[in-house]
Amino acid sequence: MRHLLSTHDLDRDNAISILDIAEDMASFGHRDVKKLPALRGKAVVNLFYEDSTRTRTSFEAAEKRLSADVINFSAKGSSVSKGESLKDTAQTLDAMGIDAVVIRHGSSGAPHLLAHSGWIDVPVINAGDGTHEHPTQALLDAFTMRKKIYGEDSRGKDLSGVRVCIVGDILHSRVARSNIWLLSTLGASVDIVAPITLLPHSIGAWPVRVWHSLDDALASGCDVVMMLRIQAERMTHAYFPNAREYGRFWGLTAQRYRRLNSETIIMHPGPMNRGLEISSEAADSPQSLILEQVSNGVFVRMSVLYSLLTGAKGQLA
């Protein structure tokens, strides 16, 4: 594995290896000295063309805990706002001598272009591209589910037999896409719950079951309910009449939360729109793993960085 661009090209062994190494990273998370020397002397650039607080902070924490040197590059207030192309930015960074790029970009496929264009010759990690993929989010979601289900015995396990219901704006969601591929690879079954206006045309080709009623889907018994954020910045058309109606039909309201089985896991990639797609009662409940997702994000990103940045060039474990 040279880059992490999508979960679609991650096979089961690679995925489980990343999750297992993340377990080991988590075992260092509680002690006084959290730093590990594994990436000492390596420079990692966080190249963020889109606003992001949690993903960038999480990557930065992961890089620092592995002792890498962190270079943050955000498009705002940089040469990009002066019109510099991705190619020139990449080549400039390369000329400075960097060892990996973490990229978030508003255009789907930008990380792929960066990895395969020949402009730079370092591992590329996709931290979210347009409406395409967000692989580290899916990995941390899978890690969080596995840890909740298997606890200390998580190592080596996949998610066979687990039923995950993903609810909301599938059309624009890179989190949903990455999760669908990864969860399927790990043996889970994926149900999609969304209004028809927020589904992509290609949904028939995906390994999922589709529901158009949240109440029906929840009544059928989901082990995990993953609520997606309504992304105001992408709501450029009339996908649904108004926010209140969306919340009533597609939100995890307090009433729906109370009808859930007490074992059902509630997840959300954040940031949440409380009162829209998820009620505070559900988000702050003991069944919610939303904060665990954030903690685990650091461990999973450490694992990805370790897996891509160590090892002799050209030798794959």
């Binding site: 290896s17 190592r155 160590t310 090892g311």
Partner: peptide, 8 residues
């Protein structure tokens, strides 16, 4: 060396 799997 090739990437090493870690342990607990």
């Amino acid at each position: 060396n090739p990437m090493r799997e870690s342990a607990l």
